[in-house]
Design a protein around this nucleic acid. Sequence first.
DNA 1: GACGATTTCGACAGCTTGTAGAAGTCGAGC
DNA 2: GCTCGACTTCTACAAGCTGTCGAAATCGTC
Lengths: 123, 123
Amino acid sequence: MASLGDLERSVMDLLWDSAEPLTANDLRDDLAALGTDAKELAVTTVLTVLARLEKKGLVERERSTRPHRYAACSSREDHTVGLLNEALGSAQDREAVLARFIGGITADEAASLRAILDSVKSA
Amino acid sequence: MASLGDLERSVMDLLWDSAEPLTANDLRDDLAALGTDAKELAVTTVLTVLARLEKKGLVERERSTRPHRYAACSSREDHTVGLLNEALGSAQDREAVLARFIGGITADEAASLRAILDSVKSA
DNA sequence: GACGATTTCGACAGCTTGTAGAAGTCGAGC
DNA sequence: GCTCGACTTCTACAAGCTGTCGAAATCGTC
């Protein structure tokens, strides 16, 4: 799984948060609105990033409409889960890692984890 | 947290697996023994990588002995947990991610997770 | 003080990411 | 059909990261 740079990440966040596919211009504006720096990127910059994200398989492009419209291929959660599995990856010590990891989550999260485990178990 | 290249990762794996600190020569030999390619790296290559890992805070160096000896700063598990938290990190939807994640682990892991959760809860 | 082992410095290639100008293409309106 | 502006593609470049070392400095020993 490919790692993302700062700008790529920002673009993905916008796409993930958007219900509709967005155009490069939409994204340029949204990016400018995001940072307090108010720095406007060139549209070509956004397009380059989108092309790279497309090549990485993270973004789909509608070529039928004239301003092409871009959307994330998978949800943010699925992407994050991919990252988690990659981090855990080939580690043979998965359980040891999980043990330490559990130690660091909040009580609320532990509770919901337990609930999730229970529902999975019954399935 | 810094991500690791292939060689850096191999070196860290060796250091994590070793009970004792290792020298650059040890590592060069171990690396050659690892890959079936039997390609020997120059010692300076290993030293460069070790210096970079030290700068990243992943490796400690004993300068007192003449062939310097290198050891991992933290355990592989701790490092992996760091990666996990980094992956989860920016996500405000931690629970959603955890839910999907649980769906992907093995039954055995789910069982041990439950056990871990129980022990944490009682603590 | 010289010599061999070891470390440090500097270097270079290849890849990734941010950034964008220049040039090509496409659709709408004349 | 032809033109014009919007949109996309191509190409490029700088910075940073990683793998890879050779050359030069250093250190301990004989």
